[in-house]
Design a protein around this nucleic acid. Structure first.
Length: 562
RNA sequence: UGGGGUGUCGCCAAGUGGCAAGGCAGCGGUUUUUGGAGCCGCUAUUCGUUGGUUCGAAUCCAGCCACCCCAGCCA
């Protein structure tokens, strides 16, 4: 131990490792012998697709298990047949696997329906649960308010035998939906409303995606969750902060039943990102209302949307790591997410040339039928990415923004009479600007310096500007989709999100000029279109043109023409 | 309003009685055969607020203020 301390002191002085509060709780419990191992779980309800907020919970739960040499299950919390579907189960498993995590076991709350039922009977037999005949409205009025205590249900003092018989009748389908509930007998005057005899079973006829029509009664979250945790052997049940007031109930359920493990619930703050919505309910509404293409629309922070947008899973994990785990409500800046995407892509994405807003250039002293190829590195950050060849010819396209007729002081690219380096190719000089009748620039006539092959000259003259280009003879046309923020408002939660939609959230450029190799790009592969940012291949459109989505939005400083 | 939480830079976030980490964003500079990359700097005399305890307080105590969650037979 001492040795380890020394080593740490000597070598890793600067790598101070700060533990988050959950890790400190775990350390305490381990040290106190409350638990001798760590087991977590990620328990989504299969009623929608996973989003970045879930990614944070996934990283936390799976990360903790890994860190402490424990295990983490994926559990589908399917106790409400009305909202759940196998489509969602499939998307959830796919998304978690894509993020790079492996669950120890794939479980379903519905796996435990029989045991949960038995636990309910156990509670009844202990006199700690009763069947209540109050309807929803009556129950609400009996519950009291934030400031006034509730009243006991008139059915609260039924005998154990009667409760048991009634509960079995509920199970056997003898009552209509909503007519009876099973409630825990706790305290109708508790200041915590969750403890005022909460419902733990309700009658609900609906086809369950796994158990079909076997059951017509379903356990409530507050009953099913602690018991599912315990049955699986979960030691730390990590959930979001809105469940904090449910913790006494969570503990009550485990304390009043004969369970294998007394799991510990720990809450953390959910993730919010500005310019985006992170509520499954609202995401579903956007999908249903046709505001977006589907759950995988690249403008949404669903995992499938981010995947389609080209965000690498490693970048998402690094982001989740960076935002930390705490209990205060917070809204993380979208720029932080994009930073981790750029940071990853900088060394993982190959470079390609593409011209999104083309301006034609004719090189007047370059022979009409001639062409030649140049070698170009695929990624200056990664030698193993190799090289490719690009073809040069008499007519090329450059980005319209790489030419300025009356250049400003800081503008070093092409302008009349000035030289510009075409990346990997030659120096060219602008000799003439051709305009249409309305004065719009339609073409530039340039000359090239044959001595500058490779983009370098022996006379040592300095050419500051360099631009990407594409040979007119050899390029392919493609569709480029520029995705911006879906919401114009920093916080779309202000009012109805529909009022905050950004009309320019999707701009389609149908005829971008692409380097030939991009025509065969595998969907999902990411490239840097040099100065224009990062793009991901998204297959071909209905015209058979290759499609690219922009991955991160432009940095504001660059937008301002710096 | 009863209960439960949270307040440290524009945004996240460390800090657990001994001179306020780090990241994002921003700003300056420097580079570069175009990375929006790299490199170098700068950016909280102050921790919601007021008092108290202490040689010493973001850390302990008390009051106040602000925000979030709970009155589903949702999770």
């Amino acid at each position: 131990m001492e040795k380890i301390k020394e080593t740490v002191a000597e070598g890793l002085d600067e790598e101070r490792e700060t533990k988050n509060f959950i890790e400190r709780f775990i350390d305490e419990d381990l040290a106190a012998g409350v638990y001798d191992r760590v087991q977590t779980r990620f328990p989504p309800e299969p009623n929608g697709y996973l989003h970045l907020g879930h990614a944070k919970a996934i990283c936390l739960n799976f990360g903790l298990a890994e860190k402490y040499n424990g295990i983490c299950n994926l559990r589908l919390d399917d106790t409400n047949p009305e909202k759940e579907d196998t489509e969602y189960v499939d998307s959830i498993t796919e998304d978690i696997a894509w993020l790079g995590f492996k669950w120890h076991k794939l479980c379903y709350a519905s796996d435990y329906f029989d045991q949960l039922y038995d636990f309910a009977e156990e509670l009844i037999k202990k006199g700690k649960a009763y069947v209540c005949d109050l309807n929803a409205e009556e129950m609400r009025s009996y519950r009291g308010t934030l400031t006034e205590p509730g009243k006991n249900s008139p059915y609260r003092d039924r005998s154990i035998e009667e409760n048991l018989a009634l509960f079995r009748d509920m199970r056997d389908g003898k009552f209509p939906d909503g007519s009876h509930t099973l409630r825990a007998k706790i305290d109708m005057s508790s200041p915590n409303l969750n403890m005022r005899d909460p419902v733990i079973y309700r009658i609900q006829r609906g086809h369950h995606h796994r158990t079909g029509d076997k059951w017509c009664i379903y356990p409530m979250y507050d009953f099913a969750h602690p018991l599912s945790d315990s049955l699986e052997g979960v030691t730390f049940s990590i959930c979001t902060i809105e469940f904090e007031a449910h913790r006494p109930l969570y503990d009550w359920v485990l304390a009043n039943l004969d369970v294998p493990v007394r799991s510990r619930q720990i809450e953390f703050a959910r993730l919010n990102v500005n310019y985006s919505l992170m509520s499954k309910r609202k995401l579903k509404r956007m999908v249903d209302d046709g505001i977006v293409d589907g759950w995988n629309d690249p403008r949404m922070l669903t995992i499938s949307g981010m995947r389609r947008r080209g965000y690498p899973p490693e970048a998402i994990r690094a982001f989740c790591e960076s935002v930390g785990v705490a209990k205060s409500n917070s809204i993380v800046d979208m720029a932080q997410l994009e930073f981790f995407v750029r940071d990853n892509l900088n060394y993982s994405a190959q470079r390609r040339m593409a011209v999104i807003d083309p301006l034609k250039i004719t090189i007047t002293n370059y022979p009409e039928d001639q062409y030649e190829t140049f070698e170009a590195v695929n990624n200056p950050e990664d030698e193993t990415a190799g090289k490719r060849f690009v073809t040069f010819s008499r007519e090329v396209y450059i980005e319209r923004s790489d030419f300025m007729e009356e250049p400003t002081k800081k503008f070093h690219r092409l302008s009349p009479g000035k030289e510009l380096r075409l990346l990997h190719a030659y120096y060219i000089k602008c000799e003439e600007v051709i305009k249409d009748s309305e004065g719009n620039i339609t073409e530039l006539l340039c000359t090239y310096d044959p001595q500058s092959r490779g983009g370098w000259s022996e006379d040592g003259r300095k050419v500051k500007g360099t631009a990407h280009w594409v040979s007119a003879r050899d390029c392919v046309e493609g569709e480029v989709r520029l995705y911006d923020r879906l919401f114009s408002n920093d916080n779309p939660e202000d009012g109805d999100f529909q009022d905050n939609l950004n009309p320019d959230s999707l701009v389609i450029v149908p005829n971008a000029k692409l380097e030939k190799s991009l025509a065969e790009a595998v969907p999902g592969s990411r490239f840097q279109f040099l100065r224009q940012g990062y793009f991901v291949s998204d297959g071909v459109n209905s015209d058979g043109k290759p499609v690219f989505n922009r991955i991160v939005s432009l940095k504001d400083s660059f937008k301002k023409g710096k």
